[in-house]
Simulated scan of single mutants.
Amino acid sequence: MSLKLNIVKLVTRWRDQGIEILPPFPKEVVHQVFNDIGAHTTDDVVELYESLGGMPNMNDDNWRMWSLQEISDANHDFSEFGVIVSDYLLDCYHFRLKPVSEAVSEVWVEGFDDGPPVCVAKSLDDFFERYVISPESVLNAPYRPTRD
């Protein structure tokens, strides 16, 4: 299934739940925001933000995709695990997009448990395809050992 189709399915689901969806952004704006924070913009990130501009509030799964302004405001320090783009359970967990090619970004999650970030999806397509089927499969962070 395609990323765009999964996003359409989720936007429909979220609107049915009464979740406000922010308008999408043109690709030039997506590139500019990511360039301004020193990040590479992959094709799937552009496709995501050309389809969905974020959410001002959490959805019924307690997840929220950030607007480009929030991404710009929150990503001051470089991380090898990518750019923070969303949160789960009121900022208990942050999801990052890590470019792995010109076309694809992996999705990583980090929490406030001192554990290292963990890759939860090999692409945005994988993330949203699994989210459509079972949000818990990507939102509930996998076990991460704590640092000694």
Rank of each mutant, 00 (worst) to 15 (best):
S2H: 07
N6T: 04
N6I: 06
N6K: 03
I7Y: 01
I7W: 05
K9H: 11
K9E: 12
K9F: 06
V11D: 02
T12A: 10
W14S: 01
W14C: 01
W14M: 12
W14D: 07
W14G: 07
R15N: 02
R15G: 00
Q17W: 12
Q17H: 13
Q17G: 10
G18W: 11
G18N: 10
E20N: 10
E20S: 10
E20D: 13
I21G: 04
I21Q: 08
L22G: 02
P24K: 01
F25H: 09
P26Y: 00
K27N: 03
K27L: 01
K27R: 07
E28Y: 03
H31M: 09
V33D: 02
V33N: 06
F34M: 15
F34T: 02
N35A: 09
D36N: 14
I37A: 04
H40N: 08
D43E: 15
D43I: 06
D44T: 06
V45S: 05
V46K: 08
V46T: 14
L48I: 04
Y49D: 00
Y49I: 00
S51Q: 14
S51W: 10
G53C: 05
P56M: 08
P56T: 10
P56L: 11
N57A: 13
N57V: 13
M58L: 12
W63T: 11
R64F: 08
R64N: 02
M65Q: 14
M65F: 14
L68S: 02
I71T: 10
I71Y: 09
A74S: 15
A74K: 15
A74E: 14
F81V: 12
G82I: 05
I84H: 11
S86L: 02
S86H: 02
D87Y: 04
D87E: 15
L90N: 15
L90M: 15
C92S: 14
C92W: 10
H94K: 14
F95T: 08
R96H: 14
V100Q: 08
S101L: 13
E102H: 14
E102F: 07
A103R: 14
V104R: 15
V104F: 13
V107Q: 05
V107M: 01
W108V: 12
W108R: 04
V109S: 13
E110S: 14
E110K: 13
D114Y: 13
D114V: 10
P117Y: 07
P117F: 06
V118F: 09
V118P: 04
V118L: 13
C119W: 00
C119G: 03
C119T: 06
V120M: 10
S123E: 04
S123A: 09
S123H: 06
D125I: 00
D126S: 12
E129Y: 06
R130K: 11
Y131H: 08
Y131Q: 03
Y131A: 01
I133Q: 07
S134D: 15
P135L: 09
P135V: 09
P135D: 00
S137F: 02
L139A: 06
A141I: 04
P142Q: 05
P142E: 01
P142W: 02
R144H: 01
T146E: 10
D148A: 06
D148N: 07
D148L: 01
